[in-house]
């Protein structure tokens, strides 16, 4: 009985460290991740997988957090997520994870909205509706810093993102922090003011493709195929003329908006269309201080786990240096594959 259960479980655990040729990656709907949908649909991912003689399943998960949880529990080899969630969910859960592709950073895609006031300082004493412990929460904390306030000066009301737009219509909701496309929807309500957004803390909310470090180490082919496919998709979607428009229209439709709506979201997203641009951020010193901010925020909110006695409990390795405990590195920014893409070696 016991043996049978262990056997079944170990079969379920796809994180077993063996060279394999069958991989699963997951993604959820967000402006910066729609390229995966397009790449899977157009066979670009398959083309690159074939080139390296492996198979890659690209699976869409409807719920963002659920997709990360699935990845963390070992159901997927790679998943799309933000830098903060990569630290607080898989890394804090002991799953050594590597940011394979640094796709973009939010440059206005996340914002704080107040009703009837146009400066962030007016938020003092208000209830703020947001998805607690998400990047919205982080952005708000960063924003409060800039006006000399702290989280003690407000009350955070945990509100499901699915209901954010609906509750914003009620009278007792006066302040929200959320992301696009909800943000644009909320801003279209009269008397709403965006008082702070992620373009004021550029490069801090980063969207990644995260891969299980062990799997990547055993299977460099997976890293090459995924990175190669990604930059081919990037080249297509950023191309001037019809080719780019067709690709972006497909992505827009897959995320239930239209080309104009999708382009509007792209405008507040700093996409790294070339590996060189992604490498600029990945290898910069700024990434270390960003991750330090994120780790300190996460530690303050108890997201690094019980064992954590300081913000540096989980080591974060970046090309420009490691933040925190070098003996417990669980999140790595690895420029190797993006560099290969930049050098045309994929």
């Amino acid at each position: 009985m016991k043996r049978l259960i262990i056997l079944t479980l170990s079969l379920l655990l796809s994180s077993n460290a063996l060279a394999r040729d069958n991989f699963k990656i997951c993604w959820s709907i967000y402006v910066g991740w729609m390229p995966w949908a397009y790449g899977a649909e157009q066979g670009i991912v398959k083309k690159w997988a074939d080139k390296y003689d492996i198979e890659i399943d690209v699976v869409q998960i409807n719920d963002y957090i659920e997709s990360i949880n699935q990845y963390t529990s070992g159901q997927f080899d790679a998943c799309t997520m933000t830098n903060m969630d990569a630290l607080t969910i898989p890394a804090a859960g002991g799953v050594d994870s590597t940011a394979l592709v640094v796709g973009d950073f939010s440059n206005g895609n996340d914002g704080v909205v107040l009703k009837g006031a146009d400066s962030l300082a007016a938020i003092k004493g208000q209830n703020v509706n947001l998805v607690e412990l998400s990047v919205s929460h982080y952005l708000l904390a960063r924003g409060l810093d800039t006006v000399g306030l702290s989280e003690r000066d407000i009350t955070v009301v945990n509100t499901s993102d699915a209901d954010m737009v609906a509750v914003y219509g009620t009278d007792d909701v006066t302040a929200v922090t959320t992301w696009n496309p909800l943000l644009n929807e909320i801003l279209s309500v009269p008397n709403s003011h965006k008082v702070f957004d992620s373009s004021q803390v550029p490069g801090e909310i980063i969207d990644l493709l995260v891969v299980n470090t062990e799997t990547l180490k055993e299977n460099p082919k997976l890293g090459k195929a995924l990175t190669g496919a990604w930059y081919e998709i990037m080249a297509i979607m950023s191309a001037a003329g019809d080719e780019g428009i067709t690709a972006r229209t497909a992505m827009a439709e897959a995320s239930a908006t239209d080309l104009a709506g999708y382009d509007a979201q792209l405008a507040s997203t700093e996409m790294f269309y070339t590996p060189a641009a992604a490498l600029d951020l990945t290898t910069s010193k700024k990434l270390v201080s960003t991750m330090q901010n994120v780790a300190e925020f996460s530690f303050k909110h108890g997201l690094l786990g019980d064992g954590a006695d300081n913000a540096g409990f989980i080591g974060i390795e970046t090309p420009a240096g490691t933040y925190g405990n070098t003996g417990n590195v669980k999140l790595r920014f690895d420029p190797t594959y993006m560099q290969m893409a930049a050098d045309g070696k994929l």
């Binding site: 969910i89 412990l133 998400s134 009350t155 009301v157 509100t159 997201l303």
Partner: peptide, 20 residues
Amino acid sequence: EAIAATDGLGYRIFLVRRYM
């Protein structure tokens, strides 16, 4: 409580679900 709250048993479950 899962949809909008500042405390409660359901709130807590749906909050900590965010980091599993």
